[in-house]
C-alpha cells in the first residue's frame, strides 16, 4: 500500500518536474533553533524566492541544501533522488561576492572549471563566450578591487553559472547595491535567467525584488524560520520594469507586507 503510494508520488513528481524538494528542514545553531520544519519545492525553469526578515535563517537553508553545513533534520531531493548533505549538486552564489582578490575577473569566473581540472588556458577559452551575456566584456582582465559593486556581482554570478548545475541558489545577490544599479541588475537577471534556462532559488528581504523576479514566493517567519505562506505570482512574462507600479503588483506587495509583519 505504502509502496504503491510512493510510486504514485514518484511519478507525480516526474510529471510536474520537481527539480528540488526540501522536506522538513529543522536546524539549530549552538543550541538555538534557527529553522523549524521548513518544506518547499522548486520546479523546472521556475524562479522561486524565499523572503524573510534579516537573520531569520535564510542563508542557513541554502548552506543545508548545498551540503556545506551538516543537517540536523530534514531531507533534500533533487530530480527525485535523495541528495541530503551531498556536495556539488547545485550552483551556489553566496551572499558575499567572495571574489579572490589576486585573480583577474576571467580567472575568478573560471574557478569552477579550474577546480574540475581544466588548465587556465582551456578555462579562459570557455569563459569568453559568456562575458558579453554577463556584461563583463572589457573587464575580464581587471582585478576585483577595480570593479564596481554591480560588476562584482555579475562576476560572482558568472562564476556560479560556470559550475553549470541546473539548480541555482542565489543568496541576496543584489543586497549591497544602490537602488538604481539594483533595479538594472534585476531586469538583467530576468533576461539572463530566460536565456540560460535554469531553475533558480533566490533569497532576498526586498519585497519588490521578490515579486518582480519570482514565479512563487515563500514567506518565512522571524527566527526560528518557518514557512508562513506560499504566494504564487501570476504577473505575465516577460516583465517590463513598469510592472512594479501596476495595481496587481501593489496588491501582492500589500499582501506580503502584511504577511511579513
Amino acid at each position: 500500500m505504502l509502496r504503491r503510494l510512493l510510486i504514485i508520488l514518484f511519478y507525480w513528481e516526474r510529471r510536474i518536474n520537481i527539480k528540488l524538494r526540501v522536506s522538513n528542514f529543522t536546524q539549530q545553531y549552538e543550541g538555538m533553533p534557527i529553522i523549524e520544519d521548513v518544506s518547499f519545492y522548486l520546479q523546472e525553469d521556475e524562479f522561486v524566492t524565499l523572503i524573510g526578515p534579516s537573520g531569520c535563517g535564510k542563508s542557513t537553508i541554502f548552506n543545508m541544501i548545498a551540503g556545506i553545513v551538516p543537517i540536523d533534520e530534514g531531507k533534500v531531493s533533487i530530480d527525485g533522488e535523495d541528495c541530503t548533505g551531498k556536495i556539488g549538486q547545485v550552483s551556489y552564489m553566496y551572499q558575499k561576492d567572495l571574489l579572490l582578490p589576486w585573480k583577474r575577473v576571467i580567472d575568478n569566473t573560471a574557478l569552477p572549471l579550474i577546480i574540475k581540472g581544466d588548465s587556465i588556458k582551456e578555462a579562459r577559452k570557455k569563459i569568453i563566450p559568456y562575458l558579453a551575456l554577463f556584461g563583463l566584456e572589457g573587464f575580464e582582465y581587471k582585478y576585483p578591487a577595480q570593479l564596481s559593486g554591480g560588476m562584482r556581482q555579475r562576476a560572482a554570478l558568472l562564476r556560479t553559472y560556470m559550475f553549470s548545475k541546473d539548480i541555482v541558489l542565489l543568496d541576496e545577490p543584489f543586497g549591497g547595491l544602490d537602488a538604481i544599479t539594483r533595479s538594472k541588475m534585476q531586469y538583467w537577471l530576468l533576461e539572463v535567467a530566460d536565456q540560460v534556462r535554469a531553475s533558480v532559488l533566490f533569497i532576498t528581504h526586498d519585497i519588490e525584488e521578490a515579486i518582480y523576479l519570482s514565479d512563487r514566493i515563500y514567506v518565512l517567519t522571524e527566527r526560528p524560520a518557518r514557512v508562513r505562506e506560499e504566494v504564487a505570482i501570476s504577473l505575465p512574462r516577460p516583465r517590463a520594469r513598469e510592472i512594479v507600479t501596476s495595481a496587481q503588483f501593489n496588491r501582492i506587495k500589500k499582501h506580503i507586507l502584511f504577511s511579513l509583519s
Binding site: 548552506n63 548545498a66 551540503g67 556545506i68 556536495i87 556539488g88 547545485v90 551556489y92 553566496y94 558575499k96 567572495l98 579572490l100 574557478l111 569552477p112 577546480i115 574540475k116 559550475f163
Partner: peptide
C-alpha cells in the same frame, strides 16, 4: 574568510 573555503567546497574542490 572561511566562506571562501565553503564556496570552494560547494564547487567540490
Amino acid at each position: 574568510d572561511p566562506d571562501f573555503l565553503n564556496l570552494m567546497k560547494s564547487m567540490k574542490a
